[in-house]
Design a protein around this nucleic acid. Sequence first.
DNA 1: CCTTGACATAGTAATTATTACTAATTATTT
DNA 2: AAATAATTAGTAATAATTACTATGTCAAGG
Lengths: 211, 211
Amino acid sequence: MKFFRMTNQREVILEEIGRYKGHPTADLLYERIKKKLPHISLATVYRNLEILSEVGKIRKLEISGRQKRFDRELKEHNHIYCLQCHRIDNIHMVSEQMLASGSEKEIGYKISGCRIEFFGICPECQRKNKPQKQNESADSHVTCKLNTRQREVLAALESYTTPCTGKDIAAMTSLEAAQVSCQLASLKKKGLVASPARWKYKITKAGKDAL
Amino acid sequence: MKFFRMTNQREVILEEIGRYKGHPTADLLYERIKKKLPHISLATVYRNLEILSEVGKIRKLEISGRQKRFDRELKEHNHIYCLQCHRIDNIHMVSEQMLASGSEKEIGYKISGCRIEFFGICPECQRKNKPQKQNESADSHVTCKLNTRQREVLAALESYTTPCTGKDIAAMTSLEAAQVSCQLASLKKKGLVASPARWKYKITKAGKDAL
DNA sequence: CCTTGACATAGTAATTATTACTAATTATTT
DNA sequence: AAATAATTAGTAATAATTACTATGTCAAGG
């Protein structure tokens, strides 16, 4: 049997998937991981995602769309997929009842699992679709006066489960650490981010709504 | 609005999908269609599969595996996928009940559909897996003494919904028309194929079992 | 009937996501 | 420490699909 070695690269990959709320693709993970391990190769990311999912540490999704996606969530759940922006969210429901429905016998397959994939339009895209007229107009009074940098910082925070430091955010975005902390201060004053611990920031409900 | 022109190529593509029982991939269809339209381009096949599915004449499946698959079946159904040989079969069951289960509200998505994908081992692969020892031995007494050509003819027939002529089969396989009719005669004698009309052949239950 | 313009086509190039390969490096076992 | 095995970065190769381009076809309006 092959021996599995927990290398530094694998730890970072695993940690990065864990930090990420959604179902990231290999290349997105690669972009993020590169910030920490600048010399890592895309092939290493791909290989390890494959191996980690074989070992059962992560889960590989082969869902709609061109790219495979990965997540850390190991308990059974299904997915819902936005036809418009291609984001994927989790959806929890029993799937066992269907397995028991006698269809297994009916068609002769030995069923080992089931994946349910809903598709539709996610809340965010629904919101985007509604107001079609205000495109040419002011465009700023709706979204609580967020500038590009603030939006970028907020978006980065939004995609993470764990609280981040300013440095983390700088690594995820194109911004410098100084720029980030400046935006964080202003966002905090508006109540769009909270700081559960010194130097640690997370997005608030209001922050999510503002996005 | 764009005008949709039913060209000869599109008719042939549509007909070929209709003739095919499974969920063929673009390149498989291309191989088959080339027999009838030797000058058709793979790009044309791809483009038209896309267009035909937009127009609603066929359905595009984005299921597990690398390639997209297409089928003509327009009423709602779900799929089951063999992890081993990658074949895909239909499975009929109600999916509406899940849509009503309140999860729509729960996550804010506007759900427009749902795809359920079971996976497991298909009957054929199960059969292949069982007898592991007889690999070196005679290898012929089990399968009702089918030779390679007969097997090829039978497999071609098996994949079609409509009765085929010998010429059809010759086109699908690597065999000459004369070779095909010779094999058909012998298969008919064994009861593995039936001839519902003069020059038309279809596979029988016994034929499927023999495969 | 002949031109005009939208739609289609074959053939090919380009792209995207992923996998395979290779030589060098690192860890584990003997 | 030497031998062996696993892993890596970097790059080449592959598979499926899409984009591009020049040419061709068809149907309608002058």
